[in-house]
């Protein structure tokens, strides 16, 4: 145990020393190789100076660029390459995988479900997050409420799925219901339902889990944004004769609109990648399939790297525009764009 800790610590120290050595050493080398002396001609000095300033950023960026290339750029290119090959990656088949996907009923079902997730989850998470952020600031126990709402953020998707399996659990009509949802339904006098097997309803119930997780995130960010609104603008609106609701919609919301959009798109990106919840709850049965899980099934269960890669590329293409837009908005909000 102690040995392991020491080993880990020494590796950390080694990595830091290595990086430091690289940065310092490369920088020293640059200064050395392009050094100027008073004896040199003025022109030569200027040329070397400008050359140094142009090279230096690349020295400091190099490690980052290297790791980005190895772990991000290369996999994307390789995935795209694989999507143009057959199941074992041996025969080049042009865009056959893509036309397969276009005509495949399960793929279409998954894409449709993803779209539904895309509309429902960000809207509900952002909406609830905003509502809770506003209301919690007016209650003396608001801090506690916010902590409770935030806690699901700390739970992994699979962990959350396990919790919600119990919520949706089903027992035969004669047995005691252990799931809260069915317990509630039977208490109302209705028969218990096998919730996760009812098409459309089951997808919605899965979305509820992600909403439960993401609301905390939305709430924390929006709560901070709400506090950033200058109090005097709200007071000015009160003097202008605006009521609470009008102030909320015409003075507060517009002032945090950028943040709302960033929160919305950030959650959207999470949603497009949804996999764990579906995998752990229904594994895509009963029309709950989503692209993430479909990709996993084709790649690792069916062993078809071509089709798996194709689905991955489709997800990537769907995420990219939102991602670019999101980064732009975030930069604009920080004033660095």
């Amino acid at each position: 145990m102690i040995g392991q800790v020491l080993y880990a610590a020494s590796m950390v120290a080694f990595a830091v020393a290595l990086l430091f050595g690289y940065f310092w050493g490369a920088n020293w080398l640059l200064d050395r190789m392009l050094a100027t002396t008073p004896a040199m001609a003025g022109e030569a000095i200027t040329r070397r100076d400008s050359l140094r300033t142009r090279i230096r950023p690349w020295i400091f960026l190099a490690p980052t660029l290297f790791f980005l290339a190895v772990f991000l750029i290369y996999p994307i290119i390789e995935t795209f390459r694989l999507s143009l090959f057959d199941r074992l990656g041996q025969n080049f088949i042009w865009f056959a995988n893509y036309s397969w996907a276009w005509n495949d009923a399960t793929f279409r079902q998954s894409a449709f479900n993803n779209l539904a997730w895309l509309i429902v989850v960000p809207a509900l998470s952002t909406g609830f997050g905003l509502l809770i952020a506003v209301l919690a600031d007016r209650l003396w126990w608001g801090g506690l409420a916010k902590t409770l709402v935030f806690m699901p953020m700390a739970i992994s998707f699979v962990g959350a799925a396990v919790i919600w399996r119990f919520v949706y659990a089903y027992r035969g009509p004669d047995m005691a219901q252990i799931g809260i949802l069915n317990a509630f339904v039977t208490w109302l006098g209705y028969p218990p339902q096998v919730w996760l097997q009812i098409p459309l309803v089951n997808s919605f119930l899965l979305m509820v889990i992600l909403v439960w997780i993401q609301t905390g995130f939305a709430m924390v960010i929006l709560s901070a944004a709400l506090r950033g609104i200058p109090q005097e603008t709200i007071e000015a609106a009160r003097i202008d004769g605006a009521g609470e609701v009008r102030i909320f919609f015409t003075i507060m919301i517009p002032q945090i609109a950028t943040t709302i959009l960033v929160v919305w798109t950030t959650i959207t990106i999470h949603v497009l990648k949804v996999f764990d919840i579906v995998y752990a709850m229904t594994n895509g049965e009963n029309q709950t399939q989503v692209l993430g899980n479909l990709m996993y099934r084709w790649t690792f269960i069916a062993g078809d790297s071509g089709r798996g890669a194709t689905i991955a590329i489709v997800i990537l293409l769907a995420v990219t525009p939102i991602m670019i837009w999101n980064i732009r908005r975030a930069r604009a909000a920080e004033g660095t764009g």
Partner: peptide, 11 residues
Amino acid sequence: MVFQSYALYPH
């Protein structure tokens, strides 16, 4: 009222 920070509606 005229406020110290002007309190204009920025949007």
